Amino acid sequence: MNDSTEASGRPALTGVLDRLHEARLLRARIDGLQALLRLQQQQIERLHDRVSAGTPGGIAAQRLLALKQGKRS
């Protein structure tokens, strides 16, 4: 511990601040991905409601889906 910066503890503090910054960035990215996932889930639910509806468009969508699934088999 001959170096004065080591004795003062500044490098250790810098490392802690770097890790804290990285953790905050990671948390922000996770929050963004969760928001995107919620948005996509809402979009899927809306599409499902349209396909499941008893309207002519919903019935046509169900028929088209059944045809596409039949081709895969």
Rank of each mutant, 00 (worst) to 15 (best):
K71P: 00
L39P: 00
A23T: 03
H21E: 03
L39C: 03
R38Y: 05
H21W: 02
D18G: 02
V16H: 04
A12G: 03
A53D: 12
A66V: 02
R38F: 02
L47T: 13
D49H: 10
L64R: 14
I30K: 14
T55H: 08
A23Y: 04
L36V: 00
E6H: 09
D31L: 14
R46S: 10
Q62N: 00
G70H: 06
A35R: 11
R72H: 06
G32S: 08
R24F: 13
L36Y: 05
S52F: 03
G58F: 14
Q42M: 12
D49S: 12
K68F: 02
H21Y: 02
E6G: 12
I30G: 00
M1C: 13
V16E: 11
Q34H: 09
I30A: 07
N2F: 07
A53K: 04
P11G: 09
G32C: 06
T55Q: 06
Q41R: 15
A23M: 11
L67E: 13
L47I: 12
G70D: 05
G57C: 00
S4P: 15
Q41M: 06
R46H: 08
I59G: 08
G58Y: 13
R46A: 09
R50H: 13
Q42S: 11
P11A: 06
R63Y: 13
Q69W: 02
E22C: 03
V16F: 09
R38A: 11
L36C: 04
A7Q: 09
A61F: 02
P56D: 07
L25D: 05
D3W: 07
A60C: 08
Q42G: 14
R38V: 01
L33G: 06
R10D: 01
V51H: 04
Q42A: 07
S8N: 04
E45G: 09
T5K: 15
D3C: 10
R72C: 11
D18R: 15
Q69S: 07
L65C: 10
K68E: 11
L17N: 08
Q34D: 11
Q43W: 10
Q69K: 15
Q40K: 15
L17W: 01
L13N: 00
D3M: 04
Q34C: 05
E6F: 02
L67G: 01
L36I: 01
L17A: 10
Q62D: 01
G15W: 01
A35P: 03
L65W: 09
R10L: 10
G57H: 03
A53P: 03
A7V: 13
L67M: 13
Q42L: 04
D18E: 14
R46D: 12
R10N: 03
L64V: 14
M1Q: 05
A60D: 14
H48N: 06
G58R: 11
A61G: 02
R19F: 07
D49Q: 15
H21S: 13
G15F: 09
T55Y: 07
S52Q: 14
A28F: 00
D3L: 10
R10H: 05
D3Y: 11
E22G: 09
L26V: 06
P11Q: 13
L36S: 12
L39Q: 10
L25K: 11
G58W: 08
R50T: 05
S4T: 05
A66W: 12
S8L: 10
K68M: 02
P11W: 08
H21V: 14
